[in-house]
Design a protein around this nucleic acid. Sequence first.
DNA 1: ATAGGCTGTCGAAGCGCTTCGACTCCGTCG
DNA 2: CGACGGAGTCGAAGCGCTTCGACAGCCTAT
Lengths: 337, 337
Amino acid sequence: MVTLAEVAQHAGVSASTVSYVLSGKRSISVGTRQRVEQSIQQLGYHPNAGARALASNRSSIIALMVPLRTDMYVPVMMEIAIAVTTSARAHGYDVLLLTGEEGPDAVRRVTGSGLADAMILMDVELDDERLPLLRGTDQPSVLIGLPADTSGLTCVDLDFGATGALCAEHLAMFGHRDIAVIGEAPAVYERHTGFAERTLDGLRSRARELGLRVLHRPCEGGFDAMSLTLARVFDERPGTTGFVVQNESAVEPLLALLRRQGRAVPEDVSVIAICPDQVAVQASVRLTSAAIPAQEMGRSAVERLIAKLTGSGKDEVVLIAPELTVRASTGPAPTAS
Amino acid sequence: MVTLAEVAQHAGVSASTVSYVLSGKRSISVGTRQRVEQSIQQLGYHPNAGARALASNRSSIIALMVPLRTDMYVPVMMEIAIAVTTSARAHGYDVLLLTGEEGPDAVRRVTGSGLADAMILMDVELDDERLPLLRGTDQPSVLIGLPADTSGLTCVDLDFGATGALCAEHLAMFGHRDIAVIGEAPAVYERHTGFAERTLDGLRSRARELGLRVLHRPCEGGFDAMSLTLARVFDERPGTTGFVVQNESAVEPLLALLRRQGRAVPEDVSVIAICPDQVAVQASVRLTSAAIPAQEMGRSAVERLIAKLTGSGKDEVVLIAPELTVRASTGPAPTAS
DNA sequence: ATAGGCTGTCGAAGCGCTTCGACTCCGTCG
DNA sequence: CGACGGAGTCGAAGCGCTTCGACAGCCTAT
């Protein structure tokens, strides 16, 4: 392992000079800089991360806590994780992956050990146990998701309320009157993850203004669950012509069931999915969808975090405006016959 | 920040004693141990990761390099990543997430800086640029995937050859004679990722023994691509009654297209998917599938790595035996009419 | 009784880096 | 023309931990 001292010796300067060349914290003459850089190249020097962390009290690592559950939104989570990693690297940070498994202890461990300089938490619950810890430390953090009380916290999330409203507007515009919301699994609501409720609230209140009737049904993913749910929907509201689906893994089953029942999409029934664009275009029908901008959420979270680490950057809640892309699964409501 | 020295003072012992209590590398009397542990509790002490890494020359971090592309197998990758993280934690290691973006440089950086003690690489290509670096360092590593030359490397992967063979056997047993393989996107083959070819080879050679005719077609995911591919399949081999699908994002489109064409699954056509079980049960038909054991792959990779880190553990190739679960998408071939 | 071997503890020497203060040259300004 | 200040460099003091050798005390075998 090549050390700073060896580089210094090779370049004929002192260790501190090499350090300053690396960090740029003091001015260095052009000649010296070049000699040092050349030595670094020739010797293949890489600064030792541990020594650096010890001496500077910064690790250049961001911790990312992902949900352990793989029961929902897996592609979204993965995309966010990758976006976070890529953005972090662009700012000179590496990413430490933590699962929710350890819970609050992970926060304590990472904060206490100086393993990471900052953290990003995903899958935040309304009243998350980790929040008091975050408020009680001076380690910067950003949440992806929105807890009930955001005071003293920085949060990034899709504006799910506006997303719901947008879905209602789109269906109303096409003349639909009775719409059904196929929600997340009941467990998601019980867990109080917030986003599902926010979607529903936004959708409901806009629907009210527009004179739509809304039926909401939580739904586990999969064919069988969707089958039951759909039967109950048409049983209760036979005139339902619009669907908003929030649970990705219910989308394909829904489409299959509708086809099987002879209901054509979008002629007889319109379907909007709330999902990443990639999912929407790969479905068996090109889906009109409200996008979940995973990339942007990841990138934005990292940027807030960097801002906090560099001193600027205050606590704030960033809600990303939703975008609805019209594809082949929505159209005018069938005229009542 | 509480330091070791403070703990030592509080407990009335020397710093080294506290260190030995923590590491267990020397025997400590019961009384001393208890006093130290109590002090650690009371003061809320967490060892500083940087100092530890510097002094011991080990970081207790495993680097995990995931593919940057999100064009394939996303749920599998995520599941592996989570399994790796969970297993690593169980062994006292944290996981540093790297994307393939940096390529070989990431290997150099991590190895050179001592950031991680070992690495796990996913999405390995047949002739991966990173392999020479791994062979040239004494940092332990494990690949998830199989390159062309495995000498001096430890690899963990599903036995895709056997998986292909298993699919052929299952369809043959049901009396199918003409089968089609819907493969990964052409880009995957061009990239030489190996697993797709291995599946095909295994399937082909077993099919030959069993007297099956095999038509292989790569396929981008999505509805449109699948539509074209399917048309060509039936054009060329109208008597095709069995499908093996390796591209997850082609599964639903295939099912939808078959339905639309009035071909019933499994009465007229049988479909086997090569995918994680979770995907198979959430599809619009409960799919007979050859499982991709993501969890096991992740766990197994970590175990080999830990073995290498602790001295035991030699280079080896671990191929996980495939398992085929029969569900509702395969059945006897229709009797020729 | 005494040498030898355990067990439990301590002190000190780093690990490789950052950073602070100090120092030496210059060029510049009054 | 001397004092001053900035640019460029160096030396040394840690950062908090691990680990090695040393040593004191005790038990056992001779």
